[in-house]
């Protein structure tokens, strides 16, 4: 696992923010742990889901950084199954996610542009 620099986000945390932003733009303001793991699996084409420990540790840290907030799902909405923890991207989280996506979009172009002719 890469060592974290102060204030720096790990690739998984950036990926979570990216997924959260995409979901927000598609009208899903909240997401839950398994739903997130499933969406990330589909996006990356991976065969396996993100591990429990890795996923919830990353979500907890993003919440500590103020990039996500969370609350428990209403008992009525759960309809008998265990209640989900619902996460929401904060304004700061959306800003960071947009910055990361923009950086990803620009980075390959920069590499191409810096090549000698």
């Amino acid at each position: 696992m890469p060592r974290r620099k102060a204030g720096a986000l790990l690739p998984l945390e950036n990926e979570i923010l990216g997924v959260a932003l995409t979901m927000l733009r598609s009208g899903h303001a909240t997401f839950h742990g398994f739903g997130l793991a499933q969406t990330m699996r589909e996006r990356t084409g991976s065969r396996s889901l993100t591990a429990h420990g890795t996923l919830y540790k990353a979500l907890g840290r993003l919440e500590e950084f103020g990039l996500l907030t969370s609350r428990w799902e209403d008992a009525a909405a759960a309809e008998g199954r265990p209640r989900r923890r619902l996460y929401t991207l904060t304004a700061e989280g959306a800003r960071v996610a947009e910055g990361t996506l923009a950086h990803k979009a620009v980075a390959p172009l920069s590499r191409v542009a810096s090549r000698p002719a």
């Binding site: 398994f34 919830y56 428990w72 199954r81 209640r83 923890r85």
Partner: peptide
């Protein structure tokens, strides 16, 4: 308790999905 409940919900959703 938060971690326990959150993983319980995840496991339930995983199996159901």
């Amino acid at each position: 308790q938060r971690r326990i409940d959150e993983i319980d919900a995840d496991l339930h959703d995983h199996i159901a999905h």
